[in-house]
Design a protein around this nucleic acid. Structure first.
Lengths: 341, 341
DNA sequence: ATGAAAGCGCTAACAC
DNA sequence: GTGTTAGCGCTTTCAT
């Protein structure tokens, strides 16, 4: 438990010099620095983060508020953020806001109100203006991932464009009866993600002069099972069965593939399926999908914060850039008449 | 950014009294406490965790070191630990040790060496004795989840008993040609989990006088795809096809179910499949499995730490109790001759 | 380039 | 039950 004073003594300098040598702030002669480094190493010295934080006002710690840990998207965002923070010498304090309003309140009191973090990454968190204001008043930089936050810089993909792309892929293959599995309003999902994805689907249909058929929409809860059940309904129709399904997430799309199989339908010959995400399992199931890159999103969120925290920090190239997404074509989509003509 | 002094002034008391009233330590008259609470609320006062930590030596923060974020087991452990910590007023600092030795070293320097955490939960982390010693010297309580750590209290299920149970279930149904998909040594898995699960399998076979057939073992990498490929090999055998497969994880077991389907085999009529975990997807696939309870494991780890951190804390009932696991029978297992006789 | 000294904001003895 | 006082271990002016 060596302190800075011991290191100073051993190096034959003052505590102030040790601090400078170790932090890199201020000028220290090379020789002195070497002595200090040696002494610190020999004593196994480490700064006390609380003492340092008290003196500087900086915690070198950012809070990440996230609604789920065990969903692919969120886990990946977290992973991206964690490694980017670690690389900057920052710690990441995790707040999992699965629960209700009181848990959320408690988290706010907790870290907002305990000066534990220098900044906040809010993943799919819908904050009220007053909550944002609160953070703002405490001069805590904040960045959102996924969905707009009032007055906060937010990283999120263009859900409308993404689902338009997915739908256009199907239309381009010649499909006209394209079903959509999306979220219903009841499903507690962040922002208007389900709605936006449905809008993109409808836009693509409209652009191709394909009328929207309400019978071709079925809600799902963004799980594999939800997609399975929705697809069973959609594909079980005796007449005018859709030739393609666009699911608002890969997990639902995989559920749809399994449902098709259970109905004796071949994917993609009898029905094409496309999802969104490029989930870990997508390749295994041969799922055509629109990839988004959640780890990258986590990393980018960190870049944005670092820029606000350290004004000298290099401008992240991707800062005001729309987030990337790409169509990944695999074997779950094909022309509707493939194998017949 | 009100400080304790302002609260004291507003309440007409000293800073010490404010501290006592707010922390609950020491005696404060009810009337005074009310005044202090009121003043604190009015000013939006919150303690500075760094100042408090510096004065007390307690950070109210525990570090969780975990190798993956996006695998079901680890995500669930994390979720359990997070909510238990939050309930105790502790924060959780996340260290994701996916990478190599240097990343691991960096994490050690980071949090071990920065006095950021009061205690450590090491999930599937293999530490050397000297690393453990280091933590020990810093008097940081530590608890492991999954796998023994030298001189550290560790929570982990009895992998041998778990896989014995799974195998016995199959034997009890009348199976004798039981294949096993486990990890090979090359697969970078924690501790001897794959080996232990294989041992349990062999023990169960031996107890039933069933000889172990090396042809019935196939390694997998604990992913769905890995299980799929292994099962293809196992079930593709022209002669003496196994009538049952015991996979060392649910994800591999699900892969095996999908492989069986692709080979035109019916589960469970032609082949029974059992896994370990009770993964989120297990119910959807009707998978019989041995449930372990990772969220509970995360919570228990916190209980253990709290006990060491606050000696007055109630003894966790489950402390020296072996971790629970249960056979969950669903529709992926049946008698080998079911439907034929 | 280095040292002396004054805090950062809180807590915990110790007095009363 | 409450106030006074002395730090916790660093960082950072301000001198030199």
């Amino acid at each position: 438990m060596a302190g800075i004073e011991e290191v100073a003594r051993r190096a034959g300098v003052s505590a102030a010099t040790v601090s400078r040598a170790l932090s890199g702030r201020g000028h220290v002669s090379a020789a002195t620095r070497a002595k200090v480094l040696e002494a610190a190493a020999a004593l196994g010295y480490v700064v006390s983060s609380s003492a340092s934080a008290l003196a500087t006002g900086r915690m070198r710690n950012v809070g990440v508020v996230i609604p789920f840990l065990n969903r692919w998207f969120y886990g990946a965002v977290l992973e991206g953020a964690e490694s980017a923070l670690l690389a900057q010498g920052y710690d990441l304090t995790l707040y999992n806001l699965g629960g209700g309003a009181e848990e959320r309140h408690s988290v706010f009191e907790h870290f907002l109100l305990r000066k534990r973090v220098d900044a906040v990454i809010a993943v799919s968190l819908e904050l009220t203006e007053s909550e944002v204001q609160r953070l703002h008043d405490l001069r805590k930089p904040m960045v959102g991932v996924g969905g707009p936050l009032p007055g906060v810089r937010t990283l999120s993909i263009d859900d409308i464009a993404v689902s338009r792309l997915a739908t256009e892929h199907l239309i381009g293959l010649g499909h006209r009866r394209i079903a959509h599995i999306g979220g219903d309003r009841a499903v507690e999902m962040d922002f208007h993600l389900p709605t936006n994805r449905r809008i993109g689907y409808q836009e693509a249909l409209a652009a191709a002069d394909i009328p929207t058929d309400p019978a071709l929409f079925h809600p799902g809860d963004f799980t594999m099972q939800g997609g399975y059940e929705a697809a069973k309904q959609l594909l079980g129709a005796p007449h005018d069965r859709p030739t393609a399904i666009f699911a608002a997430s890969d997990e639902m799309a995989i559920g749809a593939i399994l449902a098709a199989r259970d109905l004796g339908l071949d994917v993609p010959r009898d029905v094409s399926v496309v999802g969104i995400d490029d989930h870990d399992l997508a390749a295994f199931f041969g799922l055509t999908t629109v990839a988004q890159y959640p780890m990258l999103q986590g990393r980018m969120a960190v870049d944005v914060l670092m820029q606000e925290l350290h004004p000298g920090h290099p401008e992240p190239a991707s800062l005001n850039t729309p987030l990337p997404f790409d169509l990944v074509v695999r074997s779950s989509t094909a022309r509707p008449d493939a194998g017949r003509g």
